[in-house]
Amino acid sequence: MEPVEKEVLTAVQNPMLPLIFQVRSRKQETNDTFTLEIEPLDSKSEFKFLPGQFNMVYVFGVGEVPISISGDPSKKNRIMHTTRMVGIVTKAMGKLKKGDLLGIRGPFGSSWPVDKCSGCDIVIVAGGIGLAPLRPAIYYILSNRERYNRVILLYGARTPDDILYKNEIEKWRSRFDFEVYVTVDRGISGWKGNVGVVTTLIPRAPFEPENTVALVCGPEIMMRFTALELIKRGVKENNIFLSMERNMKCGIGLCGHCQFGPVFICKDGPVFSYNQVKDLIFKREI
């Protein structure tokens, strides 16, 4: 599999100038995570994105943060962002309500190689909030299901209460052509699913390693252990893709904030093949 191509679809003329979007709806997903559905205020704008890309989301008067797009790429102008409230900007974003405005620059960055893996098994491995950047890829794959062989989702969360998109996961689970395995670190009596970290699902998941493309997203440490387990199972290094995160400012390769060794996460990533980043993710100082 070729390394991910940089495919940037920029909706705005000037990538430093935010477009104004309006909140259509807000959904609380878990205790600390919510999803905003937003649309451009100017109905003439056309916003398209590829699965895996992100936006720079500007909360007026507070600040700007990179957030992956978590909605369906086939639905133009209906943009979703699933965000965990961790600090100043994401907490302010969490307070936005229907009708509120926010600034969007994007979409930026590389995408999951969903178009380049026809005929192969697809294994999607998500940890925690990492399911959000993968959801557009899932929508794309399911609406082009005939192009792929087996499609498997392995999803790990801290506890049953931290599982994102619960209803949607149940719907996916009921399909015959999508195998979904969810595991939590700690279950309580009554939890019928798996307990154990997401990496423990890899040895028993039913895929053909030589013919598998893996899309992995979650905290970096989870992606490291996942990549090693996939390689142990026989998945080729250049068929494993990870979505990396670093602090960002410009989002378009100008400021150097997101530098990761020789690459910039914002313009060369965030989606990289394991081959591209393996020498960097195991280095302490990077």
């Binding site: 940890g127 990492g130 969360a157 979650g218 252990f225």
Partner: peptide, 10 residues
């Protein structure tokens, strides 16, 4: 790995 709290930490 479970002790590392994989999904919480960044």
């Amino acid at each position: 790995i479970q002790l590392l709290d994989l999904y919480g930490a960044s």
